[in-house]
Simulated assay, not measured.
Amino acid sequence: MKPLHTTVVSGVSAAIAASIGASAVYLAPIIVMLFMSMSSIGKNVWCEVYSDDNKAEM
């Protein structure tokens, strides 16, 4: 992981842990999987939108 990724995951995990009363260590893997799935879905949507635009222009 890059340092910025570690900082973001740690911060989000700590914030959520403080509000629900859980340990940030247990939440970190869940946060990582959530971010990975959100970025994968976002990339797929982005590619789909621009592939449709390219097909319409041709």
Rank of each mutant, 00 (worst) to 15 (best):
E48S: 11
S37I: 08
S39E: 11
V12K: 06
I30L: 14
I41Y: 07
S39V: 05
L34Y: 07
A15N: 07
I20M: 06
Y50S: 04
S37N: 09
M33D: 15
D52W: 08
A24V: 01
M1R: 00
S40D: 15
I30E: 14
K55G: 00
K55S: 04
G21W: 01
V49K: 03
S23N: 14
A24W: 01
F35V: 06
H5F: 12
M36N: 15
D53C: 02
M38A: 13
P29I: 01
L4V: 10
S51Q: 10
I31P: 07
C47P: 05
T6V: 03
G42W: 04
I31C: 01
G11R: 02
V49L: 08
L4W: 12
P3C: 01
H5E: 13
V9A: 04
S37L: 13
S51L: 06
I30G: 12
V25M: 05
V45G: 04
I41M: 15
T6M: 04
M36E: 11
V25Q: 09
I31H: 04
K43M: 14
M38C: 13
C47H: 14
A17G: 01
A28M: 03
A15H: 06
K55C: 03
D52C: 10
P29G: 07
V45K: 01
D53V: 03
D53I: 02
M33P: 03
L4C: 09
V45A: 03
K55H: 06
T7L: 13
D52V: 09
I41Q: 02
E57M: 08
K2G: 02
E57L: 08
S40N: 12
S39P: 03
I30T: 15
S39Y: 09
A28W: 01
V12R: 01
A22F: 03
S13A: 12
P3N: 08
I20S: 06
V8Y: 00
P29A: 04
T6R: 07
S23F: 05
S13Q: 06
S13N: 09
